[in-house]
Design a binder for these strands. Sequence first.
DNA 1: TTCTTCATGTAAATAGTTACATGATTCT
DNA 2: AGAATCATGTAACTATTTACATGAAGAA
Lengths: 115, 115
Amino acid sequence: MQPTAVTWVLLGLVALGPRTGYEIKRIVDRSIRHFWAASYGQIYPELKRLEEAGWIAGDDAPRGGRARRVYRITALGRRALRGWLEGRETRIEMRDESLLRLFFSDALPRDYGLG
Amino acid sequence: MQPTAVTWVLLGLVALGPRTGYEIKRIVDRSIRHFWAASYGQIYPELKRLEEAGWIAGDDAPRGGRARRVYRITALGRRALRGWLEGRETRIEMRDESLLRLFFSDALPRDYGLG
DNA sequence: TTCTTCATGTAAATAGTTACATGATTCT
DNA sequence: AGAATCATGTAACTATTTACATGAAGAA
C-alpha cells in the first residue's frame, strides 16, 4: 500500500483505540493539526483504502438510527505502523508567514516610522 | 490582485534586486524553502500575473542567444509589499514527520527492544 | 566533446480544501 | 423548539509537484 499524507495519522489514531472517521477528524483538529493536518476529503477515502489493504477493519456500530462505522487496527496494520515508527525518514515541510516577513523585513527602504 | 502562496516570495526577492525566474528558484531552493517552498510551476505563472498587476516589470535581457527576462519591482509593487510586511496575519502550516512519530511513539505495545 | 549550469515554460498528474447534501441525536 | 453536535461521504474547486520539451553558454 502506497502511503498518502494521512496514512500514518489514521493508522496511529486507530492503533490507540477504535475510532470513527468523525472522531479522528476531531482529534486531529484539536492537537495533531499543529504539525500534521487532515481534512474529511482525505480521511474518509483513506479509511476505505486502509481497510481494503487490511491494515484496519471497520465495524458498523450505529447509534440509534444514525449510521456509524468504527475502525480498529489489525495485526497487519500494527506491523505496518511499527515499520513506520522505526523508520528514520523525516519529511518536514512548513510555511511560516512570519518567518517570510522576517526574511524580507529589510527588503524595502526604511520609512523611519519608529525613529 | 488576489495573492497566491508565492506572491510575497517573488515580490520580496524582486524587491531585493532585479531577478530572473531561474534565479528566484535557485535562491528559494537554497534558503527560503526551509520555511516557504516554491516550484517552477508556481513561479513562472505568478511572475506573469505580478507583471499584469503592475507590481513588477520585466525586461528582456538575453545572454547571447539565450532568452532571459529580468524582473524589477515597481512603485505599486513596493506599496503592496509594504502593506504585507506591516500586516499581522500569520498563516502557519507544517508537516513534521518526526513529531508525528513522537506523537505515536507509544501507540503500540512495547517490544522491549532496548530492555 | 561532454557535462553542468543557465533559462523559460507548461501539461499532466497528484494532492488538498471547501462546501454541501443528508439526517439523527443530544443539549439548552 | 431550536441549536449544537454526531456522522458519513463526495463533487467541485483550488493548489502544487513533477517531469518534460527546448536549447544556449560555460566549464572541464
